[in-house]
Design a protein around this nucleic acid. Structure first.
Lengths: 337, 337
DNA sequence: TTGTATGCGTTATCAA
DNA sequence: TTGATAACGCATACAA
C-alpha cells in the first residue's frame, strides 16, 4: 500500500504522530506555526485522518442512521432532506435504510446498527408488526432512537409527530361542511398508530356532526398499487361514498385513477381530501385538497432531538415529544359548485 | 463501559479471541460445535463484531456513498431506491449526501470520503462548476467512482446515462408534429453536459424539420422557484412560444404554474413536454407528456457497475458506459384538438 | 509545545 | 482445531 497515513506524514515533516494528530483536533495544545505546516503538508499529500481508526479510538462514529418505509414518497424525501441539513451542520453523516414496509428488514437493520456503525437512529416505523419488543431487548445499550411520524406507541423514546388527530378531525369536518354524508376513510394499516390516530379524528368528527358511521366505509388498503386499484374501485361502486379521506397520499392518487376509470367526477360526485406533502398538489386534475405536514421541519426536529441526546447522554432526557402542526389546504377536489 | 466486545465474549466462553473471531468469518477453520456455541452466546450477550475495528483491520468499509444534487425529486429518490436495493443485496451500506447543486459541497463531500469512510462513490454531479479537475487530483488513490445521469465528460470514469440526445430529438420532433413552430427549450444549466446533450437533440430536430432556430428560445433558468417563475412568465409573454420542452421536471411544473397565472391554455395555446420521472404525470391538469427515464434501473445499474469494480480492482475495467433508454409517453399536454 | 507509549476491537500469521 | 501475538491508524495520558 502506498497510501498516506499519520506515520508517513509525521516522517515527511520530521514530527511525531501525536503532533500530527493534534493538528487535526481542535482542543489540543499545539504551536500554531507547526499546525499550519502540518495542515499544508497534509493537503499536499492528501492526508486525512482515517475515519475508522479515529472512531475506533473515540468510540463514536459521527454517523446516524435513518430508517424509512419508502423513499419514493415526497413526505419521506423531504423529511430526509431536513435530517440531512441538520446532520451536516453538526458534522454528522447519514446512512439510509429502506424497509419497504417489511418488519423483518427493520429488525435486521436496527440490530446490525448496534455494532458501532451509527451513534443514533432516526426512524419512521414500518408498522407491519405487532411485536416491537425487539427494541427493548437491547436494554441500556440501545442506541439513541428518535421516531418521526410513524411510531410505536409502546416504545418509550423521543418522537416528532404532527397533530394528526386534530387534522383528521378537521379534514373530516371539512368534507361534512362541503355536504358529504357518506365519507369513506382509506387507510393502509389500521393497526399502526398513525392509522388509528387519524381514524379516531375521522370518527369523532362524524359523531360530532351526527353523520352515521358505517363500518364498511373504513377501507383497509394494501401497499400494492394493483391491489389498491381493485379495492378502491370496488369501494367506490359498492359503497357509493360522496367523500373520501385518505390517510396517505398514495391512496389519493389511487382514488384519482379509479375515478378516471369509472368516470366519477371529482369533486362533483366525490370529494377527496388527503394527507400529502406533494408540492404540486395544485397542478392535479382537480387540484387536491391536502393536509400538508411540515415534512422538512419534522426531519429537522427529529435530527435536533437526536443530537441533543447525543450531546449529553448524561441527561437521559425523559421521553420527549415534539408535536408539529399540519395545515389543511383547501383546493378543488373538495370544492362545492 | 459495560459494553460487550470480543474479549469479554472470549472470557465468558473460556476461549481465545481468535476463536471467537473465526466464528464470525466464513473462511476460517473452526470446529462447528464451538462455532455454534460461540454464536449462541453471542446472541445471548448481543455481541456483534465492532464495525470500526473490523474495517480498520480489513481496510474496507462495506459502505458506498451516494451524492445527489437534490432529494425532493422523483428521479433521484427512485434512483437511490435502485441503488439501495442492489447495495443491500451485496451487503453494503449507503451514505447519502445532498449537494443542493452547490459545487463547493460536492468537492467537500468527495474529499472527506477519501478517509476510508466509503469504498466507492456513486454520483450525479452538481454541474455548477467549470473545474472538475479536483477529481483527478486524487491520482491513483481516487475512490472508485460511478456517475449517473449528470456527468462530467472530462472525467474518465464509468457512467450510467440515458439516450438523452435521442430522446430530446424525438421530443422536439413530437412538438413539431403537433404543429408547434416556436419551441422554447428550458434548461437549468446550459453548460452542464446533460443540458448540452439534451439541447443538441432539440437543435437537430429543429434543423431537420426546417424550423427556424432562435437563440432567445433557449431559456436558462435557475434553481430558485421564485426566479424561475419570473423568468418563465417573461419568456411566455415576450417570446410567445407555442411549444415548450423542459430539460427537468421542475421547469415543467413552473411552466404549468405560470400558465395558470397567465391564463395560457395547455395544450391549446402551448404544448408542453418534459423530462420527468413523476409517477402521477397522468393526474396533472392537463396530464403531462413526459420523457421518462428508467430511474430505478439507472440506480441499479450504477450500483452494479460500482460493485463489479469493487470486486476486482485488479481489472481496472476501462471507463465503462451503460446507456439506458428513456420512453416518451404522450399525454394531453401535447395533444392536438 | 512536543514526543513516547499504550490501547481502542478486530483479524491474520504463526506456532502449538 | 485452537491460542498467542502483532498490526491496522489514530488519540490520549504522561513524560520531557
Amino acid at each position: 500500500m502506498d497510501s498516506i497515513n499519520i506515520k508517513k506524514l509525521a516522517e515527511a515533516l520530521n514530527l511525531s504522530t501525536s503532533t500530527i494528530s493534534r493538528a487535526f483536533r481542535d482542543n489540543s495544545d499545539i504551536n500554531s506555526a507547526t499546525k499550519a505546516r502540518i495542515l499544508a503538508k497534509a493537503k499536499e499529500l492528501n492526508y486525512q485522518p482515517n475515519h475508522y481508526a479515529s472512531n475506533l479510538r473515540e468510540q463514536k462514529s459521527k454517523t446516524i442512521a435513518v430508517i424509512v418505509p419508502e423513499l419514493a414518497n415526497n413526505y419521506f424525501s423531504q423529511a430526509i432532506h431536513g435530517i440531512e441539513r441538520v446532520a451536516r451542520e453538526n458534522g454528522y453523516h447519514i446512512l439510509i435504510y429502506v424497509t419497504d414496509d417489511e418488519y423483518q428488514k427493520e429488525v435486521t437493520f436496527i440490530r446490525h446498527l448496534h455494532n458501532g456503525r451509527a451513534d443514533g437512529i432516526i426512524m419512521s416505523v414500518s408498522g407491519e408488526a405487532d411485536d416491537h419488543n425487539y427494541l427493548n431487548k437491547f436494554g441500556s445499550k440501545r442506541l439513541p432512537l428518535v421516531f418521526f411520524d410513524r411510531i410505536y406507541e409502546d416504545i418509550d423514546t423521543p418522537r416528532v409527530i404532527t397533530n394528526d388527530y386534530n387534522s383528521s378531525f378537521l379534514a373530516t369536518e371539512h368534507l361534512i361542511e362541503q355536504g358529504c354524508t357518506r365519507i369513506a376513510y382509506l387507510v393502509v394499516n389500521k393497526s399502526l398508530s398513525i392509522g388509528k390516530t387519524r381514524m379516531q379524528g375521522y370518527l369523532d368528527a362524524l359523531a360530532k356532526h351526527q353523520v352515521p358511521f358505517e363500518e364498511n366505509l373504513i377501507v383497509d388498503c394494501s401497499n400494492s398499487y394493483e391491489e389498491n386499484s381493485v379495492i378502491i374501485k370496488e369501494a367506490l361502486t359498492q359503497l357509493k361514498p360522496d367523500g373520501i379521506f385518505t390517510s396517505v397520499e398514495r391512496l389519493a392518487f389511487a382514488t384519482y385513477y379509479a375515478c378516471y376509470d369509472l368516470n366519477i367526477s371529482i369533486p362533483k360526485a366525490l370529494k377527496v381530501i388527503s394527507f400529502s406533502s406533494l408540492e404540486i398538489a395544485p397542478l392535479l386534475n382537480p387540484s387536491l385538497t391536502t393536509i400538508t405536514q411540515p415534512a422538512t421541519e419534522i426531519g429537522e426536529e427529529a435530527a435536533k432531538l437526536l443530537f441533543t441526546i447525543l450531546d449529553d447522554r448524561a441527561d437521559k432526557s425523559p421521553s420527549n415529544e415534539v408535536v408539529l402542526t399540519s395545515k389543511i389546504i383547501k383546493r378543488n377536489s373538495t370544492r362545492n359548485d
